[in-house]
Write a protein that binds this DNA or RNA. Structure first.
Length: 272
DNA sequence: CGATTATCCTGTGCGC
DNA sequence: TGCGCACAGGATAATC
């Protein structure tokens, strides 16, 4: 499932390929993909030039030359793909943005959790994204300290709560907790100052390493970049999806405790 | 208010 | 070999 490193990889590809180009035609066939407003509203982008693609957490922010912003979120199975004009549409293609020069940008999403929507022109934060905490690559130890203080919920639940920190999901929460040496089931408020410092460092180092490896593609998950290539960070996973396999640090089998309706991969010796 | 649970959706993989 | 079903999980609404 795409998280911050995958969104950032796609963002960079989108900027390289489509920034500066003019959108000539929009075709929307997936009603659920554009469920926040009437599908034809995307058509107002026709004729606009794409200035830049930004990102906050897992949200991609397409900035157009009329000041409007198209927000994209891949959720579980969404994928942005570059395709040649007129080439066959892949199954579950819900939107096609045809550019004047760079070809087509297509949104594919079997499970239709992903979405595209327009937010109003004008400066300032967008209401639709106002609930998000700071981007995970911009959190400080002091912010983490304040955010975890007094919280009884499991650390992993808080790390994946986009209102606390934006961009961390299931995979990277487990990898971050392992890198920090902290158990994901620990109540957030129980972390000591030194542990929070390690956690802050782990957030940055794990996410940056994952971006450098162009994200994670797992066998049962379909993440691909704009060109259809898989990521490589899954080969660097220390605990995620490695139940029963030896911990890379101490050799003890990776365990998978559950809490509530969720679970986490971890090493019970290396993580306290 | 904070924490937990249900919901959305379809491809995958497992057990029988 | 084939069928049915539990499972996967990001975000949000509903509920405790």
């Amino acid at each position: 499932m795409p998280e911050l490193p995958e969104a950032e990889t796609v963002r960079r590809d989108l900027v390289d390929v489509f920034a500066g180009d003019r959108l000539s035609q929009v075709r929307v066939t997936g009603r659920r993909t554009v469920r926040r407003h009437p599908p034809q509203l995307l058509g107002k982008l026709e004729g606009r030039r794409l200035l830049d693609v930004g990102r906050h957490g897992k949200y991609l922010l397409f900035a157009w030359d009329d000041g409007s912003v198209m927000v994209g979120h891949l959720r579980m199975s969404g994928q942005f793909v570059r395709a040649a004009p007129g080439s066959a549409l892949a199954p579950h293609t819900h939107a096609v943005l045809a550019f004047a020069e760079a070809g087509e940008l297509r949104f594919i999403d079997p499970r239709t959790f992903g979405e595209l929507f327009i937010v109003g022109a004008g400066p300032g934060p967008h209401d639709e994204l106002s609930h998000l905490g700071p981007d995970a690559l911009a959190v400080s130890p002091s912010y983490l300290q304040a955010s975890l203080a007094g919280r009884r919920a499991p650390l992993k639940s808080l790390l994946t709560d986009q209102r606390v920190v934006a961009g961390i999901g299931n995979i990277y929460a487990d990898e971050i907790c392992f890198a920090a040496g902290v158990r994901p089931v620990r109540p957030g408020g129980s972390l000591k100052k030194a542990e929070i410092a390690r956690l802050a460092g782990a957030i940055t180092s794990v996410l940056e390493a994952a971006i450098a490896a162009r994200g994670s593609t797992l066998p049962d998950l379909g993440y691909r970049d704009l060109s259809g290539n898989v990521g490589n960070f899954q080969f660097q996973h220390q605990v995620y999806n490695r139940l029963g396999q030896p911990c890379p640090a101490c050799g003890r089998p990776v365990s998978r405790p559950t809490f509530g309706a969720r679970s986490a991969f971890m090493c019970s010796r290396c993580q306290r």
